[in-house]
Write a protein that binds this DNA or RNA. Sequence first.
DNA 1: TTGTAAATGTGATATACATCACAATAAATA
DNA 2: TATTTATTGTGATGTATATCACATTTACAA
Lengths: 185, 185
Amino acid sequence: MSLALKNHIEKIVSLTDEEFKYVLSFFTKKKLQKHQFLIASGAPVQTDHFVLKGLLKATYTNDEGKQHILQFAMEDWWVTDYQAYFLQTNATLNIDCLENSEVLCLTLENREKLCRELQKIEHFFRIKTSMGFVAQQQRILSLLNKDAKGRYNQLLEQYPQLLQRVPKTILAAYLGVTRETLSRL
Amino acid sequence: MSLALKNHIEKIVSLTDEEFKYVLSFFTKKKLQKHQFLIASGAPVQTDHFVLKGLLKATYTNDEGKQHILQFAMEDWWVTDYQAYFLQTNATLNIDCLENSEVLCLTLENREKLCRELQKIEHFFRIKTSMGFVAQQQRILSLLNKDAKGRYNQLLEQYPQLLQRVPKTILAAYLGVTRETLSRL
DNA sequence: TTGTAAATGTGATATACATCACAATAAATA
DNA sequence: TATTTATTGTGATGTATATCACATTTACAA
């Protein structure tokens, strides 16, 4: 249900039913299977995505083939290759599904049109992005400050659900350690 | 000169002289000496800051007394303890001056008022924050991906000016290595 | 100028984590 | 169900970086 999006937006601004209907008309729904790619490195990035259902991961693979996870995205989260999306360049990230998923897609053009026409939505995205910015600062501090164990414990505290849904191999790639190290706790 | 702020904003939206005059009326100017604190850990965070002149660092000090640098801020950059600013809680960061500095201060109340009254400004902050978000994702990838040398080289490439203005001891705290390691390149 | 503090370089050693290797389960798929 | 493929644990060893210690240089202040 796209009610999820309405509830999500209304945590920041309230919308009439007509307004929300209008907002929703700018999105398209997409269903993906586990292991399917939402964004493939090298390809243009058309859309940002609000996750209705499922779980995805955004990863960067370096020259030596080592994969690092920039973010997870589950229900009510947004995910895309933001650098490529905002600058309209090709993706450097891969985003794929850890579970069957369902997302609402928003092109940059539609996002900007929506923000122009409904200041409430521009407000929503400004506040949302500010909160995302703060969350990322916390992640940076965590990487600077804490060792593997500390980062693992913090992740458990913040997102205990992830532990149930994601294999440890994958968690390790998010924490920036090898699966062996994580296995030894 | 606060022309710097006008030019800065106009990279994203254009403002008439009257509009800019109005915008500027929401800011207050503050001058600081080298070593002076703009934000002190534990105290409330009243304002966000646009740097007119000088150089500052935002740091987090952990339980063992080790200091990590979350960001530098020089001319045309914005800096505050964003978590504390947006959530109106006490600072967990310290922000102090590496050089004599001059900043324009904007309270959260004024920021929100300005955004409400002038959509252009809400647009400006939305875009600005989105770019900041992207820059931080790059920093996270750099911390996950690169070793000390790689991160150092990237910093040199991105901000060669910093090298002239900041002692290596301090750069090390930004890169997440000890000064000894950085000294050995 | 002289004295004190900050910044830098370098050695010796310790440690967290990576890497490689292999085995044991658990889960997905034919 | 059987067969393959992913996930996890654990040992042995290597390596980047931390830590501690001390000397040298540079900046700042009395």
